[in-house]
Nucleic acid binder design. Structure first.
Length: 619
RNA sequence: GCCUCGGUGGCCUAGUUCGGUAGGGCAUCGCCUUGGUAAGGCGGUGGUCGCGGGUUCAAAUCCCGCCCGAGGCUCCA
């Protein structure tokens, strides 16, 4: 028996004419049923009442889950090429109706054997559309055991792996010195959280005029204000530079792909509900959710041999699209359109892959360090198959040793996805939720799927091992982590602050009265010449108020200009990180600030230098 | 998508229990003040109380539907 099950707002149907001699008697009149689970049902050879009962049991379970109780059994032959005889089929659908009514389900049935006209409105939630195949008992057992096996495979167990190689089940590990790891384990394993607050970073992303929700778009597609665009752009530039230095070749690939492309569709079949779909002329297209597609298609067509391996390819995807469920979207933590650096490396064999993997692990650590997240700010999660661990213990432990703190481990009985080893750096936020930043995977499957081959020593074709890495994770998510970290600092009594290189305004010059605006402007110009982002508060406000405004914007250095400075030649610099005011010569201050941002990308101030000329985007 | 809670000038918020002229603070604009490191003073503009419908003499307030947000569930390359 095959059932196409549709949770519908309503269905209307009207018998038009009898199709077969055995058709039931029915009136040619339209029926309408609201809020109903429609079961388009095809009865196949070998089905009987036990199959009908089995079908209703499954449907009942589903109804309970959706808290509804109304079904329409709609005989629909087109689902199967192996139909039962009409007389048997009629018997079976009648049995379904009866069994359903016995189970206290409000059951309706469309007449059998008629050509019917119908209109249906299907609800949009993920469970609304399902198909079922129900087989007779003996075959079913086989099916069930297969399903069970699949279930077993999916089962994983949790451990903590220490730098010395000790691996202990999570319940036996002493977390007293590893509070953040405990939170991570809690989140990953039990996923129990209670929070009624708005995530702090969402308030901050608005208050600091970084980004905001865009009501004119789809949820999870953000608008970026000038300051946010600057921060994001600096991070993008930073990560891209690291990738180029690592030896990756930067490419750019399309954001949309043919839904029916032979190679892509097999990959896509595994994530049918998660894409944005668009139509153009006759084509069905989907928006990419990572850079894999474009890079793999390039690599499929490219010519290369073992001599060019490892081969590294990189793209900063602006954007990657994932149509996450609306309830899962949260500010800068998770969007439907996000920016992800994605780097693949093709390796000739496991040995080379392992070496490459370690190099990238270190690179990821440096990347996070550079953007202001140190070892203490994230937790390592490692996932692998049992087999892979058994044969590569030292290698896996070496990852943990690199970071020099225990990692949470998820071990799988068998390979269920395309990778055998994967790790992530996870940031734990103020609500004790964990989000992956950097990640790398060791993929032993997709080269075959995409038919990516290299020429080996002997001239034969080989499938490479593919590593998939995002050195920083989503760029938006990096900003989320920085904001949440700042909020953590604030709770501890430290001033929240950005690393200097990421601050939209690094230095603010405040004239103590408007007599000094001109002198302040001259100072500001000198600072700008040193590639520092400086602005000037020329508004007719009191000095105190301007200082307050600067502090609320998280500006790293505030420089006051008045008669005193002009006389002494020293600058009066307020340092946000310490709250102290120091009088130092301009040159010395410039050297200090320049040193602080050494080696990091720079972009000019994204707003008018004079505050009086600026719009207010929020608040 | 489901369940729960919420939505009041650009921002924060009082008022909703028990229906009766929407009130305050910040920001913005104007005037006074020209200042020394986290809020100087006075005055003005700005709201069909998320949207649509209903009940009522009367709705921010009660009822229904929808939109948006948060939390939970589910899902998560």
């Amino acid at each position: 028996m095959r059932i196409l099950q549709l949770h519908s707002k309503y269905i209307t149907y009207k018998p038009v004419k009898k199709e077969i001699a055995e058709a039931e008697e029915a009136e040619k009149k339209e029926s309408r049923i609201d809020d109903v689970l429609v079961l388009f049902t095809a009865v196949e050879k070998g089905d009987d009442e036990t199959v009908a009962a089995q079908a209703i049991t499954q449907v009942k379970a589903f109804l309970d889950k959706l808290k509804m109780n109304r079904v329409l059994i709609y005989p629909y032959a087109h689902l199967s090429a192996n139909l039962a005889s009409p007389s048997l089929a009629l018997r079976v659908v009648r049995a379904m109706e009866r069994i359903a009514q016995d189970a206290k389900i409000e059951a309706y049935r469309a007449p059998f054997g008629w050509n019917k006209q119908f209109t249906i409105s299907v609800k949009g939630h993920p469970l609304a559309e399902q198909s079922r195949v129900i087989l007779k008992e003996p075959q079913m057992q086989e099916k069930v055991s297969e399903a069970l096996k699949a279930e077993e495979k999916r089962e994983s167990s949790w451990y903590v792996l220490s730098p010395d190689g000790d691996i202990a089940p999570v319940k036996d590990f002493d977390f007293s010195k590893h509070k953040e790891l405990a939170k991570f384990a809690e989140y990953e394993i039990s996923k129990v959280r209670v929070s009624r607050e708005m995530p702090p970073h969402i308030k901050l992303m608005r208050k600091l005029e970084i980004a905001d929700y865009e009501p004119g778009s789809d949820p999870g597609n953000l608008r970026w204000y000038p300051k946010g665009r600057l921060i994001k752009s600096l991070l993008e530039q930073f990560v891209t530079t690291i990738m180029m230095e690592y030896g990756a070749m930067e490419v750019e690939t399309p954001v949309m792909y043919d839904f029916h492309h032979p190679t892509l569709s097999s990959y896509l079949d595994r994530f049918p509900a998660r894409q944005y779909l668009i139509q153009s002329e006759e084509k069905d297209l989907f928006l990419r959710f990572a850079a894999c597609f474009g890079q793999f298609l390039i690599l499929h067509d490219a010519q290369f041999s073992y001599r060019q391996l490892p081969l590294r390819m990189y793209e900063l995807t602006r954007y990657s699209f994932r149509r996450e469920k609306s309830g899962e979207l949260a500010g800068l933590r998770r969007q439907r359109a996000f920016t992800m650096p994605d780097c693949h490396a093709l390796c000739s064999n496991l040995e080379q892959a392992k070496e490459e993997f370690l190099e990238r692990f270190n690179l990821c650590r440096e990347t996070l360090e550079g953007l202001g997240l140190s070892r203490g700010d994230y937790e390592l999660g490692i996932r692998f198959t049992k087999d892979f661990y058994e044969t590569n213990k030292d290698f896996i432990t070496s990852l943990v040793r690199f970071l020099d703190k225990p990692a949470l481990v998820e071990m799988f009985g068998e390979k269920i996805l395309y990778w055998v080893l994967k790790w992530e750096f996870n940031f734990i936020d103020n609500q004790e939720k964990a989000s992956a930043l950097s990640t790398d995977q060791l993929d032993v499957e997709n080269a075959r799927r995409y038919d990516i081959t290299y020429v080996d020593h002997d001239g034969g074709r080989q499938y490479p091992i593919i590593l998939h890495c995002s050195p920083s994770g989503g760029i938006e998510r990096c900003i989320y982590a920085l904001l949440e970290k700042a909020y953590k600092d604030q709770k501890k009594g430290k001033p929240p602050i950005f690393p200097l290189w990421l601050s939209p305004t690094q230095i603010r010059v405040i004239p103590v009265s408007d007599k000094f605006i001109e002198s302040a402007e001259e100072i500001a110009e000198q600072i700008t010449n040193h590639k520092l982002r400086v602005d000037l508060d020329d508004r007719p406000l009191t000095m105190q108020k301007k200082v307050r405004a600067a502090e609320m914007e998280w500006i790293n250095y505030v420089v006051a200009i008045g008669q005193k400075e002009l006389d002494s030649g020293l600058l009066s610099v307020r340092d946000r990180s310490t709250g102290k005011i120091k009088d130092i010569p301009l040159q010395e201050f410039l050297e200090k600030a320049t040193k602080e941002i050494q080696g990091k990308p720079w972009r000019p101030l994204p707003l008018p230098t004079r505050l009086s000329k600026r719009p207010q985007f929020y608040g």
